[in-house]
Write a protein that binds this DNA or RNA. Structure first.
Length: 312
DNA sequence: AATAGAGTCAACCGCCGTTCT
DNA sequence: CAGAACGGCGGTTGACTCTAT
């Protein structure tokens, strides 16, 4: 049996909101709140609108903390980064952009950013920030090298044969850490990346260490690299999709001129969308192989984990 | 100046997960 | 426990604006 409609569509006004309606809704919500029931709100407020429509209008336009106006380059970068990791999880992406709504971000992506990327203007490199990469005080987590050229690297995972367990950890780990993704192997130990691990546009060195099932990244100067527990030393097979990687004799992974590029599937998905009219945001899968490690998003509430973390 | 096409974005639609009864 | 009600989400639409011809 189908669900009853949320409102009587014949008796509700549709289309653009008038200033009067905006004022009525704003005034009511500011005075009474939503009461936890959007469906009943329009009647109480004296609006001939569907509750869903009221909710949308409030969330996307009338809320006092909404940021109107163009997106900054910093916001561009965040959106691109998160899209490359999560696909079209607009609400999740928007949650990292104070004052922006999922609708805003979605529209902005569809109308501008995607085209910008396709035009080859968005070959991003990971840059250093002084916090977790988000929030009002953050600096760019990504920067655009002035001379960068579009590049479509094949997204690959490299296999960390750590002890007896096998975990597939993607090359996007650094960025995942910035949005609070952590990893656990065999459900026991966390492989949680340092949330303040940062990269500069032309990074001289990155070290990643494995200590007792923890990946500990060197944040600034690589001094945290441990000879005995370095990522590369522990790895039986490492394939590097990015230019600029070096594997030292000691096995430490070092990079210079590190340039973060979008995974193949990510860019390809956009191309496919352009060609076939459908989105193929499957890069999430390419970034982390959930089947080989117990990987759960961290820093996200459980409902988000339920909704997105186990989608496949 | 008129028109067509492209771009933008607010709003709607329908599905899904959660909560309530 | 089942079904209804609701909130939230991503995809899509269509009205409006801008730009090129």
């Amino acid at each position: 049996m189908g669900r009853a409609p949320c409102c009587d569509k014949a008796n509700v006004k549709r289309g653009p909101w008038s200033p009067e309606e905006d004022a009525t809704l704003k005034s009511y919500v500011e005075t009474h709140g939503t009461g936890g029931n959007w469906i009943a709100l329009p009647q109480k407020a004296g609006l001939k609108r569907c509750g869903k429509s009221c909710r949308l209008r409030w969330l996307n336009y009338l809320r006092p903390d909404i940021k109107h106006g163009g997106f900054t380059e910093e916001e561009d970068n965040i959106i691109c980064t998160l899209y490359s990791q999560m696909g079209s999880r607009w609400s999740l992406i928007a949650s990292q952009l104070p004052g922006r709504t999922d609708n805003d971000v979605k529209n902005y992506w569809n109308t501008k950013l995607k085209k910008k990327l396709l035009a080859g203007k968005s070959s991003f490199s990971i840059s250093k920030s002084n916090n977790n990469g988000f929030g009002p005080s953050n600096t760019n987590i990504l920067t655009q090298p002035a001379s960068s050229q579009p590049c479509l690297p094949k997204a690959e995972t490299y296999n960390l044969d750590y002890s007896t367990s096998q975990s597939h950890i993607s090359t996007a780990l650094p960025v995942l850490s910035d949005v609070g993704y952590g990893f656990s192997v065999n459900g026991t130990q966390n492989l949680l990346l340092d949330p303040v691990m940062h990269f500069s546009g032309h990074l001289s060195q990155l070290g990643a260490t494995l200590e007792n099932s923890h990946i500990v990244t060197s944040s600034q100067d690589g001094s945290g690299i441990s000879d005995s527990t370095s990522l590369a030393t522990e790895s039986k097979s490492v394939s590097m999709p990015y230019n600029g990687y070096h594997v030292e004799d000691t096995g430490n992974i070092l990079m210079d001129q590190f340039s973060y590029e979008f995974p193949y599937e990510f860019v390809n998905g956009i191309w496919s969308q352009e060609k076939a009219g459908e989105v193929v945001p499957s890069c999430y899968d390419s970034l982390i192989d959930f089947s080989h490690a117990d990987i759960k998003p961290q820093g996200l509430n459980q409902s988000v984990v339920n909704r997105y973390g186990e989608r496949n």
